[in-house]
Amino acid sequence: MTIRLNGKPVELEGIATVSALLAHYNLQQKILVVERNGEIVDRSAYERTPIMDGDKIEIVHFVGGG
């Protein structure tokens, strides 16, 4: 399947949930927020939130700013 991750098309196989996606990129320990198709995914819902073909996923974090 193909998803759009932070604006770029990405090919993924065997990734069924948000938590699997985060594990795939080794992001489990990061302070971040996930948005799926414009909806924020609560951290408690990572396990049960599916990743599906065509999804638009944004993964954001805090960076320096004024």
């Binding site: 991750l5 932070n6 990129y25 960076v63 700013g65």
Partner: peptide, 15 residues
């Protein structure tokens, strides 16, 4: 702080 996309290709860049 600002909120920006995480660089997926380099998630361990110092933050």
């Amino acid at each position: 702080f600002a909120i920006r996309r995480l660089n997926i290709d380099n998630p361990d860049a110092p933050n």
